[in-house]
Amino acid sequence: MVKKIDYSIVLKGAAFPLLLIFVWEITARLGYLNALFLPAPSKIGYTFVQMVADGSWAVNLLASLKRLAYGFLITVCLAVPLGIVVGRARSFQHWISPTLSFLQQIPPIAWIPIFILALGIYEAPKIAVIIYAAFFPVFLNTVQGVSSVDPKLVEVGRAYMLSPLSMIRRVYIPSAGISIFVGLRLGLSNCWRALVMAEMITRTTGIGAQIWEGRDLMQPDRIFVAVFTIGVVGLIIDIILKRMEHRFMPWKKKHPGDKR
């Protein structure tokens, strides 16, 4: 079941960043770069090790990941069931889709001041931003997936006497599974980005707050550690979700024509 890692692809993907870091390091050492905003990669690496050692890196990362987990879980619990209901009732879509299209245009960050006014500066506004950021991709992809379920398969469900609940569980959800999963992936990466923004504005804890802290302290190396952490964590989350997709949907992995 587990896909083997193709090392040549990993190598190709890593070649460009490694080259970039190498050139960056050389130019920094030769004194071409202003260390005030572009410290050498080795300096950033050193700071990273230090931050790991004194625990500040993990504290901020965990604070962010905890929010991400809560916010995302709440979103999934809201958006998926709602998406299933709306996806099945076509007429309902006419009622709400203009509103949704309107809301979708507003970036989550635009709501942050309102959320802060309404919810304070601690956890609530950040989680609210995450929910807002992830809701639309998850919801819209669920609606899309459910409303494009093959009516012929639904008819099989009818002919074989499925109860309405079984119909959702055994026909609609698996049919829409691929689409829902795409929504979850999009939603989670939206979440992660929106969270960093929210943390930068509310400036309490978390990776985003760490970036501002680095600016306030004039320590660009700390900023870079945070920025790279954001990128790498985002990447890891995406890889994990892709793997889960293969795991839960084995029929999708093999394409027609492939032999077992």
């Binding site: 012929k152 398969l153 008819e155 099989v156 009818r158 002919a159 074989y160 006497m161 055994r170 026909v171 698996p174 049919s175 599974g177 949907m249 029929w251």
Partner: peptide, 28 residues
């Protein structure tokens, strides 16, 4: 309406792509 006393085989197989042969057969 549909009933437990009648089973339909359609023109197309209409199998569930996410189920194996055995799970498809057990569907009803």
């Amino acid at each position: 309406g549909p009933g437990h006393d009648r089973a339909v085989v359609f023109q197309e197989p209409r199998l569930f792509p996410w189920l194996t042969v055995e799970q498809n057969i057990a569907f009803g």
